[in-house]
Design a protein around this nucleic acid. Structure first.
Length: 221
DNA sequence: TTGTGTTTTACGACCTCC
DNA sequence: GGAGGTCGTAAAACACAA
């Protein structure tokens, strides 16, 4: 273990055994009546460095990780209420031997983590829902395809039957009178129309007369 | 041991509310 | 205007593979 690591280990150990040791050891600025700040990292704009009264190289200003017990207590408190009113902050700080500012910062960071977790969970939920919708769409697409195939087969069958009916009529002795009747009113398949649904597929529309027509024609088939 | 990615602690800037 | 919130980020602490 290097000297640096020994130093770190000792500092961490001391901080856990005596939570106040760092805050009470940090040099106070002349005339500053506020409690000493625990650790201030160097910032780009220099304000915090001035507060530290040093460049941080002496080790006393290194970041101090909170002990497991401190974190456990903070977590319990956070579980009760995510917001931190002044009174509770001071009480927690006193109980845990921390600077009230540290407690406030811990809650800020904890709220941020909680929010991230919530967003992550929400993202996962929406992603799963989306996947389910995609699967359902695939199933429905496949069903539509299947139904269109069935429709196409039905159209072919109708066409085949119509040709057979036409052949039977033309070879029948009654064919001339039937064709006259057919010309006068509606055609034999007058109630059967082929339309266009705009989707590249033909639609068949037929009314009950179509069925009657078949019954009527059955002796000729 | 060291490089690298992640987590934790802390701060500055800015916003909202009373 | 001050207190306390969020957001973005710096830097220390930590974990871990190579």
């Amino acid at each position: 273990m290097s000297n640096q690591n020994v130093d770190d280990h000792n500092l961490l150990f001391i901080s856990q055994m005596y939570p106040n040791v760092y805050t009470s050891s940090i040099p106070q600025q002349a005339g500053d009546s506020k409690p000493a700040q625990p650790m201030r990292r160097r910032r780009k704009k220099g304000v915090a460095v001035a507060e530290q009264g040093g460049d941080g190289s002496n080790g006393w200003f290194r970041k101090r990780k909170l002990s497991d017990e401190q974190v456990r207590m903070l977590e319990m408190s956070f579980g009760d209420e995510h917001k931190l009113e002044s009174e509770r902050k001071d009480r927690l700080a006193k109980e845990l031997g921390l600077d009230p500012r540290q407690v406030a910062v811990w809650f800020q960071n904890r709220r941020a983590r909680w929010k991230n977790k919530r967003l992550e969970d929400e993202y996962t939920r929406l992603k799963n829902a989306h996947e389910n919708v995609v699967v359902e769409k695939c199933r429905l697409d496949s069903e539509v395809l299947h139904l269109k195939e069935q429709l196409h087969d039905a159209e072919r069958e109708i066409q085949r039957l119509a040709q057979r009916v036409e052949g039977a009529i033309s070879s029948s002795p009654l064919s001339s009178s039937v064709s006259i009747e057919a010309n006068q009113t509606t055609p034999f398949f007058g109630d059967y129309e082929v339309g266009y649904d705009g989707d590249g597929y033909e639609n068949l529309f037929y009314s009950p007369e179509y069925i009657n027509g078949f019954e009527w024609m059955s002796p000729f088939i």
